[in-house]
Design a protein around this nucleic acid. Structure first.
Lengths: 211, 211
DNA sequence: CCCGGAGCTTGACAGTTGTCAAGATAAAAA
DNA sequence: TTTTTATCTTGACAACTGTCAAGCTCCGGG
């Protein structure tokens, strides 16, 4: 009887886990749909109904899977994180010279700025929201740290390929590149055609001086 | 008759100007009141009624002086600009040595971060909004340029006092300091006591290497 | 003195919002 | 099969939003 009971408990636990997985998978599906609308309209102008209307789901589903709006947005932020903190890692892993790393980084930078502008403006929007809404802070600070680490991996590898060491702290390097990217993004969204090439020039000039 | 007419026209024009001044003065009064609430709640959560309730005015007055909500926020942004783009100029003007400039800059930086955190998070919020709302872009880009120039004045003076020249472009320097400040602000708002001292350390270390 | 209009208040409007509950449907369990 | 449970739809609710119009107050010019 003990065995049967244990077996039953185990099976129930497995069922539970499977159900949880399915539940979480659905949450991520919904979060992904929500990110579309959020990237289009920004946090301030996005309502649950708008999200639902721009997706294949009804607004009730979102309430079924998320306790409230903040819960949904938090899930969006966390899911976004997973997608972006390894963006440049392939370049870092495959580059065998400073030039190769530079060009790979610049190419990825330009591509990101142009094809994922909406997702990135949302990131800057949510990071600003975190200054007002405490519920976002933990996740946002974590993403920031991950991005800082990502930049640091690039800088370290770049320095290593020139037998040097990065000349600044991770925080300063991240601030620099993030600031440049943010500014370029705003100009790019304002239809400034010079934004992308100027960012690339700036980064190309900067890399040898900071690493 | 010609003289009388001219006189009358002139006087009417003067009256018109005075009225315009009064009108604009009131707009700025209202914008200043609005900035309080905006700094407290952020753009996304701030409604005209909330602004009115947190001020000495009724919500109707805002509609009397502003064509719509965007008009009000734009006026807020422009007014904010005037207050912040000369923040460090006195330090630049009075400092007679690198150390003096450094310490003056750091002191002002710390004071700003601590006592005007709300106003600054609003700035970052609105700059993010500009990525979504075209109506904000012109003013935001102008403020950004003015801030870049402000940082450049500090860096130039710092370099001058050491008989050097700034080692980076205005854009890169602004990106760097703005990025550091933004990150420190978020941490400070998240009750991280180390945010301010770490920012100061970082800037103190960085100044001699970039100028 | 009064009277016109600038400045302001009040209340109403239509539309939107987050939230939720009651019921439908489909899938799983018995 | 029947029953139960998870999933989803629909419609409703109250609160809130930007906007505006009708009317009030009060001051300056006539």
């Amino acid at each position: 009887m003990a065995r049967r009971a244990t077996g039953a408990v185990k099976r129930e636990a497995v069922v539970e886990v499977v159900r949880d997985d399915k539940f979480n998978a659905r949450r991520i599906e919904l979060a992904e749909a929500a990110l579309e609308t959020l990237g289009e309209l920004g946090f301030a102008r996005t309502s649950l109904r708008e999200i639902a209307q721009n997706s294949a789901f009804t607004h009730g589903v979102f309430h079924y899977y998320f306790s409230d709006k903040l819960d949904l947005i938090c899930c969006c932020v966390r899911h976004y994180k997973a997608k972006c903190v390894t963006r440049y890692d392939e370049v870092v892993a495959t580059a065998t010279s400073r030039d190769e790393l530079t060009e790979g980084f610049l190419a990825k930078l330009a591509a990101t700025l142009q094809s994922e502008a909406r997702m990135h403006r949302l990131w800057y929007d949510l990071r600003s929201q975190a200054m007002f809404e405490a519920a976002f802070r933990k996740d946002v600070l974590e993403i920031d740290k991950s991005l800082e680490a990502m930049i640091w991996r690039i800088a370290s590898r770049y320095a290593e390929l020139g037998n040097k060491r990065p000349a600044s702290s991770p925080a300063a390097l991240y601030a620099l590149f993030d600031g440049l990217f943010q500014s370029a993004l705003l100009k790019h969204l304002a239809d400034d055609r010079t934004a992308v090439p100027e960012l690339l020039d700036e980064v190309r000039r900067l890399l040898p001086t900071v690493c």
